[in-house]
């Protein structure tokens, strides 16, 4: 088998690429494979992809407004973020919250963190303070648990929802 790229040398490296859920098989000679992996490393920053995702195709006015916003803590502008695909500091998340929330939702399918938090660790083990999830969050978790047939988890979620709802009624 000859190399797919140069067609001259025997193909010794076989790789599978997945681009947009499309699988491609590539058979390359060692030389072309080296070029290829160098090119992939450059891309690896994901920045192009992210920069593309952060575009506001539908709201050109909104984009202009967004691009000018700067994080006062680190000086990174939203235009910078679009260019490099990286935020400048933690505070950028506060400053660009309005634009980042939909972006995070597109990347992760959610913009609400569920999971551990650093305060938990700071409080002594005797008094674990767990941040309670909101009602809407619990309900969506319940839905997921039922779909996944995780009935034990579903039952515990149902109890938590009940507890929250009765609390709300009292308020």
């Amino acid at each position: 088998m000859l190399c797919d790229v140069c067609g001259k040398n025997p193909a010794t490296v076989h790789l599978t690429e997945i681009i947009d859920e499309q699988m491609n098989e590539l058979h390359l000679c060692e030389e072309c494979a080296r070029h290829k992996s160098a090119a992939m490393e450059q891309q690896f920053g994901l920045s192009d992809l992210l920069a593309g995702m952060a575009d506001f195709e539908k709201h050109p006015n909104k984009e202009e407004e967004a691009v000018a916003v700067k994080c006062p803590a680190c000086g990174l502008s939203y235009a910078d973020f679009k260019k490099i695909g990286r935020l400048g500091c933690g505070n950028c998340y506060n400053v660009f919250r309005k634009y980042l929330a939909p972006l995070l939702k597109r990347i992760h399918g959610s913009s609400q963190h569920i999971g551990k938090n650093p305060l938990q660790a700071k409080v002594s083990a005797a008094k674990p303070v767990k941040k309670k999830a909101g009602l809407a969050e619990l309900k969506s978790q319940l839905q997921k648990a039922i779909l996944a047939e995780a009935f034990e988890e579903a039952a515990s979620l149902r109890d938590q929802i009940k507890e929250l709802e009765t609390k709300k009624e009292k308020e």
Binding site: L50, G90, Y93, S111, H113, G115, N117
Partner: peptide
């Protein structure tokens, strides 16, 4: 942050 979780340079790692 409470809503976004642990903040990272690249938003693909946030949460």
């Amino acid at each position: 942050l409470e809503d976004f979780g642990y903040l990272t340079a690249c938003p693909t790692n946030t949460g």
